[in-house]
Simulated scan of single mutants.
Amino acid sequence: MRRPHVAPLGGRLDLADLLPLLPKLCTKVLGPTGTTCTLVGDRRVDKPFFHHGDLTVTGNPDIEAPFVLTGSLSVEGALNDTDHRKNSSDPSPGDQ
């Protein structure tokens, strides 16, 4: 089924290549001014997280899911960025 509103891209589209564009797109759509937020204590982020603005974490965040900010991230602790794909069937970028 042809969808006329979708432009042909030619080749394989890797959505991971588009991820760096997401914060700029969100800022353009949501406006340049986000909110400043502080999360206190150790946090495990196991569901997709989005925040429009700057985020400060006072603790040790464990990031296990997609995590998108349109502003700056400041961590007063140790950040653990787990590859959330390790238990899925999705190949990691180096495996392709």
Rank of each mutant, 00 (worst) to 15 (best):
V6N: 06
F49P: 00
F49R: 01
L39A: 12
C26V: 13
P4G: 03
R85N: 10
V40H: 12
H5L: 13
G77D: 02
P4F: 12
S89H: 10
A16F: 12
K28R: 10
R44A: 07
G94S: 15
G94M: 13
D81R: 10
R3P: 14
G31T: 02
K47S: 11
R85T: 15
G71I: 06
T33F: 06
K24V: 06
D90I: 13
G94V: 08
T38W: 12
E76R: 15
Q96V: 07
D90L: 07
D46T: 14
L13Y: 02
L30T: 01
D42M: 10
P61K: 00
L73D: 03
P23M: 02
G11C: 08
A78E: 13
N87H: 11
D90V: 08
P20R: 01
P48R: 04
L69T: 04
C37W: 09
V75N: 01
S74C: 11
D81W: 09
A65T: 03
D90M: 14
N60Y: 06
D90G: 03
T70K: 03
L19E: 07
K28L: 11
N87R: 03
V57Q: 02
L21A: 10
S88E: 11
P66K: 02
L22R: 13
T56N: 09
L18Y: 04
P91S: 02
K47A: 15
G59M: 09
G71A: 03
S89T: 09
L55K: 05
P93L: 02
P48A: 12
L55G: 09
P48L: 05
R85S: 11
R12G: 04
L22A: 11
D81K: 11
N60M: 01
L30N: 13
K28D: 14
P93I: 05
N60Q: 02
G10A: 06
R44D: 10
N80Q: 14
T82Y: 14
V6T: 12
L30C: 05
A78I: 09
V45A: 00
L13N: 06
L21H: 12
L69C: 02
C37A: 14
R2P: 08
V45F: 15
G71K: 10
F49H: 00
R43E: 05
G53C: 14
H5F: 15
E64C: 06
R12Y: 08
H51E: 05
V6Q: 04
S92N: 13
N87K: 08
S74D: 13
L9D: 05
A65E: 01
I63T: 05
T38C: 07
L30G: 03
D54C: 12
L18G: 07
N80W: 06
E76P: 02
E76F: 11
E64K: 04
L13T: 03
T35L: 08
K86P: 05
G11E: 09
L69F: 01
P4K: 10
T38S: 13
L55N: 01
M1K: 11
H51G: 03
